[in-house]
Simulated assay, not measured.
Amino acid sequence: MSLKKSINEFGDYLGDKESLLEKNYPRIAEIIQLHWGYKEIYQYINKLLVVDKDRNRQGFPAQVLQEIYKLQEIHEKLFPDLNVLPNG
């Protein structure tokens, strides 16, 4: 099941548009879906958004970044007690 269909708030955010995250990065969308409702999602999203100097990555298009940030925002609202990153 897609993120848009399984997360109502994300579907509302997208409206009639398709998710570019799901279309162009299906593996990442799948991992986000697997981590949904668990605190590990924050580590995963942080890993996606932080660019390591040693890694040769191009980065995400702006619209995909917006979707990732929106998913993080929705998760924080739905699961506020999980929004704690471990130290270290």
Rank of each mutant, 00 (worst) to 15 (best):
M1A: 11
S2V: 02
L3N: 03
L3I: 03
K5L: 12
K5T: 14
K5R: 10
K5P: 00
S6L: 09
S6W: 04
I7G: 01
I7Y: 04
I7D: 01
E9I: 00
E9K: 07
F10G: 01
G11L: 09
G11V: 06
D12C: 03
D12K: 08
D12N: 10
Y13P: 02
L14W: 02
G15M: 06
G15I: 05
G15E: 13
D16P: 15
D16E: 14
K17R: 15
K17I: 03
E18T: 09
E18P: 02
E18W: 01
L21D: 08
E22V: 10
E22L: 12
E22A: 11
E22I: 11
E22R: 10
K23S: 15
K23Q: 15
N24P: 00
N24Y: 15
N24I: 05
N24S: 12
Y25L: 08
P26Y: 03
R27E: 12
R27T: 08
I28D: 03
A29M: 07
E30L: 09
E30T: 08
I31E: 13
L34G: 00
L34V: 06
H35L: 15
H35A: 12
W36S: 02
G37H: 09
Y38L: 06
Y38S: 12
K39Q: 13
K39E: 14
E40P: 00
E40R: 02
E40N: 09
E40L: 05
I41S: 02
Q43W: 08
Q43M: 05
Y44A: 01
Y44K: 01
I45S: 03
I45N: 06
N46V: 00
N46S: 10
K47M: 05
L48V: 10
L48G: 08
L49R: 11
L49G: 01
L49T: 05
V50A: 07
V50I: 15
V50Q: 07
V50M: 09
K53C: 05
K53T: 15
K53M: 14
D54T: 07
R55E: 12
R57L: 14
R57T: 15
Q58D: 08
Q58I: 14
Q58T: 13
G59V: 06
F60T: 05
P61T: 04
P61N: 11
P61A: 13
A62I: 11
A62S: 11
A62E: 15
V64S: 06
L65Y: 11
L65F: 03
Q66I: 02
E67K: 04
E67H: 06
I68M: 09
K70D: 02
K70W: 06
K70G: 04
K70Y: 10
L71E: 01
L71C: 01
Q72L: 09
Q72P: 00
I74Q: 08
I74K: 08
I74Y: 07
I74V: 10
H75T: 03
H75L: 04
H75S: 09
H75F: 09
E76Q: 10
E76T: 06
E76I: 09
E76D: 11
K77E: 12
K77H: 07
L78T: 04
L78W: 02
F79C: 07
F79M: 04
P80C: 04
P80E: 01
D81W: 05
L82M: 09
N83A: 13
N83E: 03
V84I: 15
L85Q: 07
L85R: 06
L85S: 07
P86R: 14
P86Q: 14
N87V: 14
N87D: 10
G88Q: 10
